[in-house]
Amino acid sequence: MSLHDPRFDVDAVVLDIEGTTSATGFVVDVLYPYSRARFAELLTERAAEPAVARAIAQVRELTGEPDADAAAIEKTLNAWLDDDRKATPLKTLQGIVWSEGFARGDLVSHFYDDVVPALRAWHTAGLRLYVYSSGSVPAQRAWFTHSPEGDLTPLVSGLYDTENAGPKQEAASYRRIAEATGVTPGRLLFLSDRPGELDAARAAGWRTAGIRRAGEPYYEQGVGDHAQAGTFDGITVSRSTT
């Protein structure tokens, strides 16, 4: 297989979102400010809700500040946003805010033009599709539900994040996903723009391909010795029936 003409015979494709299916700029320029503007209300008026309370407790644990109040927690969340830190409680709270924003029609997700046709073709060909993103599962579900081309969730067999699978640059996370899906590791293909994630997936026995889109943060860095393509059109994915 050529690194620049990747062909894969697999049973399932696992998708990263940011920088792979969708523009990082949309997340940073649209979704981050949307959540930043709503953290204070969430932390003060809805702190008793189980998901919010759990996230607050996780922030306190991660910062070593067990008595941190809403203002201190909001400050931490905004600092993590500035650093683009993939902290689970941040992603949980973002997911709550974004899900509601999508449901209200305030937000519509972004997909590169080559992505949705490829997902539909792969699904029709009998391939299972999964998502593994640092964004929370609720945020992923909202993202695929409220796309410019309608509800895409019927194409997706499962959603994984840093809470139910683990950190994206650890091989153990990919082993958990393989076990959960029941797909043999060598029959799973992971698509991502981040070399560290691709390395971890390969260490778990997965097939890998890097998506290098001009203008994305990891474009210049490249994807090391992984197969690569500039769009989903540049990847041939099939599922043998023998």
Rank of each mutant, 00 (worst) to 15 (best):
R212T: 13
V183I: 15
R194N: 15
A118V: 02
A201T: 09
T184H: 15
A139D: 03
R128S: 13
G158N: 06
V137R: 07
K168Q: 07
P138A: 05
G182P: 08
Y112P: 05
L107I: 14
G215M: 13
I211P: 08
D161A: 06
D151Y: 05
A204G: 10
S240Y: 00
L198D: 11
G234N: 07
D225E: 15
D113C: 02
D233V: 01
S133E: 07
E179N: 06
F111I: 03
G196Y: 12
T145H: 01
A121K: 11
L127G: 06
Y112V: 02
Q140R: 06
A139H: 10
R194V: 15
G166F: 10
V137P: 02
R176Y: 09
A229F: 08
A125N: 11
G196K: 15
T162Q: 07
G135F: 08
E179I: 01
H226K: 03
A180H: 14
H110K: 13
G105Q: 10
A180L: 11
D233Q: 04
A172F: 08
T242A: 09
A209T: 14
G126C: 09
V115I: 05
E149V: 06
E170W: 03
S133T: 08
D113P: 10
D199Y: 03
N164E: 03
G150K: 06
I235T: 00
T184L: 13
A227Y: 05
G150R: 06
H146K: 04
E216G: 08
E149H: 07
Q221D: 12
R141F: 01
S147P: 01
A180R: 14
F190M: 13
P217E: 10
T208A: 13
A204H: 14
G182Y: 13
L159P: 00
V131S: 05
